[in-house]
C-alpha cells in the first residue's frame, strides 16, 4: 500500500506538470505538425532552394488537387511539370515577399523571374493543408508591367 502510494506520487506530479503543456499543444493536430510548421518546412525548400522533388515528396499529398489551369492534378504531375521548367530555366528564382498562415491555408506572395534583367511575374499561391500534407493549390499570376502608375512596386 505504502509502496503504491509512493509510486503514484511522481505519476500524478508528472501529469500535473504536463497539463499546461498539453493545453498549449491542443492546436497541434494528430498528425503532429501545425499548418505554420508545414509552411516553415515547405517554403524554404521549394521557393527559396528550388528543390522541387524533395519539397513535394516531403510535404505534398499524392492526390494533390490542382487549380492552376495549366497543370493536371496530382503530386507527380506537378513534379513532372516543374522539374523540366527548372532545367530549362536554371536562372529562375522566386523571392517570397509575404506569407499568411491561417489553418488550413498558407498564402505565399512571391516574385518569380528568370534573370536579374527579367521583370518577371507577381504570383500568389494558396495552399490548403490537411493531415500535415498540402492537398490543394490555387494560384494567380500576373506579369510585372514595364510601367506603373505609382512608385510602390508590385511587392
Amino acid at each position: 500500500m505504502a509502496r503504491r502510494h509512493f509510486s503514484a506520487a511522481p505519476v500524478i506530479a508528472a501529469i500535473l506538470a504536463a497539463a499546461p503543456a498539453l493545453a498549449e499543444d491542443a492546436a497541434v493536430p494528430a498528425c503532429g505538425r501545425t499548418v505554420q510548421q508545414i509552411a516553415d518546412g515547405f517554403i524554404p525548400l521549394f521557393y527559396e532552394q528550388g528543390k522541387v522533388r524533395e519539397a513535394y515528396e516531403a510535404f505534398v499529398a499524392e492526390d494533390y488537387r490542382q487549380h492552376n489551369p495549366h497543370a493536371t492534378d496530382g503530386r507527380d504531375a506537378a513534379i513532372a511539370f516543374l522539374e523540366p521548367f527548372y532545367e530549362r530555366n536554371p536562372g529562375h528564382r522566386m523571392v517570397v515577399h509575404r506569407v499568411l498562415v491561417e489553418d488550413p491555408y498558407i498564402v505565399v506572395h512571391l516574385h518569380g523571374f528568370s534573370s536579374p534583367e527579367d521583370r518577371g511575374a507577381a504570383a500568389v499561391d494558396i495552399l490548403r493543408v490537411e493531415n500535415c500534407q498540402i492537398v490543394e493549390h490555387w494560384d494567380v499570376t500576373q506579369p510585372v508591367p514595364e510601367r506603373s502608375m505609382n512608385d510602390n512596386g508590385m511587392f
Partner: peptide, 19 residues
C-alpha cells in the same frame, strides 16, 4: 494593398476551375 490578377483561360488542364 497588393493584388495579382489573371484572366481565367477558356481551357484548363484540369477539371477543378480556378477557385
Amino acid at each position: 494593398h497588393w493584388d495579382v490578377v489573371q484572366q481565367v483561360p477558356e481551357q484548363s488542364a484540369n477539371q477543378n476551375g480556378m477557385f
